[in-house]
């Protein structure tokens, strides 16, 4: 029994070790390593689309503050809704976010990426500046990454600012518009998220 337990612990430990990539805690190096890892995965022709999506989801779950992003995106409504509905929203938001992230990354995976520098805004936030280099039909795109550094050993991405336009803010305003048009009924938003996930 003891041997079996030891075996299980060893397997679990090595599985986690093998599949969990730890990136550098310096925000600039963190973004560089993470994005290049994602691009490498997405441009690898030897693995299937499902496998790619699974790897990207894993990287995102570990390195993007999806929970905070979900709360931010919901705006002030988060303060007034029932805890169970909020939990349901968070689950759906995570699935929605991962699906949309994989799709967006796929769209740009053929491009070269370069980190330019970083700017520490506060003890909680560092903005990492980067760019996607120009290719045939796509001009150069500047991307700033809002990295949450409250735990300096475990930076987390909270937003992407593409050419000065915040994706989190766009998402927040999109959700707010859906809520406003439907008497702030969160069920309508949840249904729209479900529809997107099942597409």
């Amino acid at each position: 029994m003891r041997k079996l337990f030891l075996l299980i612990v060893t397997i679990v430990f090595f599985n986690n070790f093998a599949f969990s990539v730890t990136y550098n805690s310096n925000p600039q190096i963190f973004i560089n390593e993470l994005v290049n890892d994602a691009i490498k995965t997405l441009s690898d022709k030897s693995i299937s689309d499902e496998e790619k999506a699974a790897v990207i989801s894993k990287i995102a779950r570990e390195n993007v503050d999806i929970k905070a992003l979900g709360l931010y995106t919901l705006g002030n409504v988060r303060k007034t809704i029932d805890e169970n509905i909020l939990e349901n929203y968070q689950n759906l938001f995570e699935k929605y976010f991962l699906k949309s992230l994989t799709s967006r990354l796929n769209d740009y995976s053929g491009n070269k990426f370069e980190v330019l520098g970083s700017d520490q805004k506060s003890s909680n936030y560092t903005i990492v500046n980067s760019k996607i280099l120009e290719n045939n039909n796509q001009p150069e795109i500047k991307i700033d990454w809002r990295v949450y550094t409250k735990n300096p050993n475990k930076p987390l991405i909270r937003d992407l600012v593409v050419e000065g336009l915040s994706l989190a803010r766009t998402q927040k305003e999109e959700f707010a518009s859906i809520l406003n048009s439907n008497n702030n009924d969160i069920k309508v938003l949840l249904t729209k998220l479900e529809e997107f996930i099942s597409k």
Binding site: S103, D107, I141, T170, E174, S177
Partner: peptide
């Protein structure tokens, strides 16, 4: 110039009208 950007936005929006509005105002 923005072929990929538009396609990506259209594919990933729950309400494209609101996304466009937000991007324009920002």
């Amino acid at each position: 110039d923005n072929m990929t950007n538009f396609d990506s936005l259209e594919k990933n929006s729950l309400d494209l009208y609101s996304s466009m509005k937000s991007l324009y105002l920002q």
